[in-house]
Design a protein around this nucleic acid. Structure first.
Length: 198
DNA sequence: AGTGCGATTGACT
DNA sequence: GTCAATCGCACTA
C-alpha cells in the first residue's frame, strides 16, 4: 500500500468521490497505525446548496478551499467530527465526505477508541470513522497527499462494484445522486434501501 | 448579544 | 422504527 499522489486524484469532486471507494485511509500515531478501506463517500460539489462552501469561505470551512487532497475536519451536532477531502483547485470550495471504512490495520486500537467490539461497527458512519481513526479538529487542513501521519493510500485489494444513491442526513439538494458506496459491503452506513442497486 | 439549526449518534420502543 | 442530546457557527440586530 503506497501513498496516493495528488496528480492521481481525479480533478473534479464527483469523480474523486467515486475514485476514493476502495482506496485506503491511514493514520500513524504513537499508539500505532490504524487504516481502513474507504467504502462510502459523498460528494459536495461546486455550487451545492448542501455544501459548507456554498456561502463562501469562512474560518470554519477554509480547508475546503485548499487544493484537492487536503483534510477538512469540522464539528457537528455538538457530538461528532467529520472528515472530508478537498476536491478542487485552490480557491474553489468543494469536498468529499468520508462516511465509512472497512477496518484493516489497528483493529484493536479502533476498538479501544470506539468502545465497541464488532468489526462492522467500528467505522460505519462519518462520526464513528473519525473516532476509530483518531482524527479530530487538529487534523483540519492537513495535506493527505503529503508525507504526514494522516494519508490516503492505494487500494489494498480489488474493489467491488460501486453503487450510487442520494446523500444521507441533508434536506437541501436532497435528490441528487452523489453518495457512492461499495455494493454489498457490510461496513457501509445508511438505510438498507439506499444500499441497493438503483 | 441572541437565535436557530445542522453532512450524527446512541439509547430506547 | 423514533427521538433527544449538545454546541459551534453563521446570521440578524
Amino acid at each position: 500500500m503506497r501513498r496516493l499522489r495528488r496528480n492521481a486524484l481525479p480533478a473534479n469532486t464527483v469523480d474523486l468521490a467515486r475514485y476514493l471507494i476502495g482506496k485506503t485511509l491511514v493514520h500513524d500515531t504513537p499508539k500505532g497505525r490504524a487504516s481502513g478501506r474507504i467504502v462510502e463517500t459523498e460528494a459536495y460539489v461546486i455550487g451545492d446548496a448542501a455544501g459548507h462552501a456554498f456561502r463562501g469561505q469562512t474560518r470554519r470551512n477554509r480547508s475546503l478551499f485548499l487544493r484537492r487532497g487536503h483534510a477538512y475536519v469540522y464539528f457537528i451536532y455538538g457530538v461528532s467530527y467529520l472528515l472530508n477531502v478537498s476536491s478542487e483547485q485552490v480557491g474553489v470550495g468543494a469536498g468529499v465526505l468520508l462516511r465509512a471504512l472497512e477496518p484493516l490495520e489497528g483493529v484493536d486500537l479502533m476498538r479501544e477508541r470506539r468502545g465497541v467490539e464488532r468489526l462492522q461497527d467500528l467505522a460505519r458512519g462519518p462520526g464513528r470513522l473519525t473516532v476509530a481513526m483518531g482524527v479530530g479538529i487538529h487534523d483540519d487542513g492537513l495535506d493527505l497527499c503529503g508525507d504526514g501521519a494522516l494519508w490516503l493510500g492505494t487500494e489494498a485489494r480489488s474493489t467491488g462494484e460501486v453503487g450510487v444513491s442520494i446523500r444521507i442526513g441533508i434536506t437541501r439538494e436532497a435528490h441528487r445522486p452523489l453518495r457512492f458506496f461499495e455494493r454489498g459491503s457490510r461496513f457501509v452506513s445508511g438505510p438498507g434501501r439506499l444500499n441497493q442497486p438503483i
